[in-house]
Amino acid sequence: MLLEKPMPGNKATRAQRKRNAEAADWILRNADLKQSAEDKDRFKQWLDQDPENHRAYRAAERLLGDARTAIESDPALLNINIKPHNSAKPLTAAVLLLACVGTAFLMLDGPMRIQADAIAETDEMPVLTLEDGSTVQLNASSAIAVNFDGKHRNIRLLRGQAFFQVAHAPERPFTVQAGTTRVTALGTAFDVRLGEADTEVTVTENSVLVESNDATTSSVRVTQGEQATYDQNSGQTAIQSVDALVALAWQRGQIAVENAPLSYVVEEMNRHFSGKIVVAGTALAQRRVSGTIAIADTNAALAFIKQVLAVKTTRIGPLVIIR
């Protein structure tokens, strides 16, 4: 089921992300047992600068609390017996605790949550309304950062895939940055997928201009019914005709592939899986798959792959190995 929710205006988005990063930095610095008096004074000054700094710091504390909860719920971490053999025992314990909290912070997607304005979890594909009336639907495990001002509408696709329906406002160009690829809307609806090795741009309405940060690469115009694929390794962009229903199958929790490498299919499955699916070996990762796969149902997708490729799967906790 799609989540439909408005996205507030974010003229101060850049400042908010900077504030969130500063709050996370202060959380770690304040955990240092040898923090200097000057550092403590600077922290107080930072808090007093803006009431929003208090809000950001409380939010960072809550996230850190989630990290501590993750540690406390893991018997392997909870039962660590720290026995330093020197006078640095408190410092050693603090360093180990910070290392554990840092690991949990990464597991809880902390760095991405600081950067992003919107994140989709593995079990959702939300539809968001931007301040200009444009809408964006995020694929599972996707994230965006939004930066609108009076002259520009800029979005960064930080991870995953998103479908954009752009409100008409030619005086404020609408661009999406996905890795090294920049997409400029020309009054349109389009889909952008930021993959591990390539970036795909599919146009379902009107046209877009696709450019690369590489100055030696020419921009290309992609029109309705076309898909541009930018290969990050070769720096080349290929354009092909595509069926919109096929390209946007992810909105229905599916992918429709024809002779696609297993690595691509697994990458899409991982968006909907709370653990990690890996392929054992490069040769197997390059095996080809065709068909319509219900990737939102991990068990069904794995069963399909096992049948089609005659492979086996092994589960080790949150890890699934295809071999």
Rank of each mutant, 00 (worst) to 15 (best):
F190N: 00
P51A: 12
G9N: 15
L284Q: 07
T122K: 10
T129A: 10
N147D: 15
A228H: 00
S219E: 09
P75C: 06
D132A: 03
P318G: 06
D109S: 08
Q49F: 11
L47P: 07
A67P: 04
Y230K: 02
G253N: 05
P261S: 02
V146W: 02
V183D: 01
E61C: 06
D198L: 08
E61V: 03
V308P: 03
V176H: 00
D117P: 00
L158M: 04
Q177E: 10
A244C: 06
N10M: 02
I119H: 02
V208F: 04
P170Y: 04
A59H: 14
V308Y: 11
A280H: 01
A116K: 07
A300P: 09
T175L: 04
E200H: 11
E124M: 08
T103V: 08
F148G: 02
V320M: 00
R221F: 11
A247Y: 02
A249S: 11
V279A: 05
T314A: 07
V176Q: 06
P84L: 06
I155G: 09
D191K: 06
M269G: 00
E171C: 08
Q227K: 10
D214T: 01
T314Q: 12
R17Y: 08
S212I: 01
T204N: 04
A88T: 13
F304G: 11
F190Y: 01
V222D: 03
S134P: 05
